[in-house]
């Protein structure tokens, strides 16, 4: 199945792109999506969202999901 992985702020620069389509196995979780793109562990605090709702690295993903990775928030 395929999901759309998105990266923001410093993670976009680290990974090298803001959005990429990723093929992962059935029953994959967010962690699998991260590894499929980066090939390494997060190594720092990384927040996760699935379809614009907060999630965690162990959350399951399904075909067509938008899985976003971003650093701690610094707005306001």
């Amino acid at each position: 199945m395929s999901v759309n992985a998105r990266f923001f702020a410093s993670l976009k620069e680290r990974v090298g792109h803001g959005s990429v389509s990723v093929d992962v196995a059935e029953a994959a979780c967010v962690r699998d999506v991260w590894y499929a793109v980066t090939g390494e562990g997060p190594g720092e605090e990384v927040l996760v969202a699935i379809n614009k709702e907060y999630a965690d690295f162990d959350a399951a993903v399904v075909d067509g999901d938008e899985v976003a990775f971003f650093p701690p928030i610094t707005g306001g």
Binding site: F8, S10, F70, P71, I73, T74, G75
Partner: peptide
């Protein structure tokens, strides 16, 4: 907002 709304400076 400062901890949950996705903004980055």
């Amino acid at each position: 907002l400062k901890s949950k709304a996705p903004f980055w400076k």
